[in-house]
């Protein structure tokens, strides 16, 4: 295992927000570099420090009850909410799009009945039909997008928040 892989495996198991994880990553790499400079091989360093699980468990025990863990939890909640909202927005977009197609398929003949509406007039009539139908879907989409942006902002703030 290279030092980058070793450190990545440790940091991936630490329950701390992204800002603290970056800090730990930098310090672990600097610490390993100091050990290498002292003449230790990567195998010896890993044997001395312990398995990634063990090192991460020590960090987690030290961080228990601190604000780092609180920001980590908030970061995860905000990320999950953001992803759920994005999925919902995509579903709404998909279904309102399908609904619009279904509406046009049904309303199509009635547009045809108008007759004489060709060229710019038919475009105007079709435009009326399209903007009038999925307004509920668009409103829902806008609400979901707004909430998703808020969650994204919360996620980024919690990620980089210093304890």
């Amino acid at each position: 295992m290279t030092k980058q892989q070793y450190v990545r495996q440790i940091v991936g198991r630490i329950h701390a927000n992204a800002g603290t994880r970056r800090r730990i990553r930098t310090d672990l790499l600097a610490g390993i570099a100091a050990k290498e400079e002292a003449g230790l091989t990567m195998e010896q360093i890993q044997a001395e420090m312990g398995s990634p699980e063990k090192v991460a468990a020590e960090f987690n025990a030290s961080f228990a009850g601190t604000s780092t863990v609180t920001w980590y939890r908030r970061q995860r909640i905000a990320r999950t909410a953001f992803l759920v909202l994005v999925v919902l927005a995509v579903l709404v977009l998909l279904f309102s799009g399908l609904g619009m197609l279904a509406f046009l398929a049904v309303a199509g003949p009635s547009v045809g009945i108008i007759g004489g509406a060709d060229g710019p007039t038919s475009v105007y009539v079709t435009g009326e039909v399209v903007t009038g139908t999925p307004s509920g879907g668009i409103a829902l989409l806008l609400v979901l997008a707004g909430l998703a942006i808020l969650c994204l902002a919360a996620w980024l703030i919690c990620r980089n928040r210093k304890p």
């Binding site: 090192v55 030290s62 210093k162």
Partner: peptide, 15 residues
């Protein structure tokens, strides 16, 4: 004392 104990304490002192 290993890294998992040392660094969180150093962060606290630094912060």
């Amino acid at each position: 004392t290993r890294e998992g104990t040392l660094y969180p304490l150093l962060y606290r002192l630094e912060d």
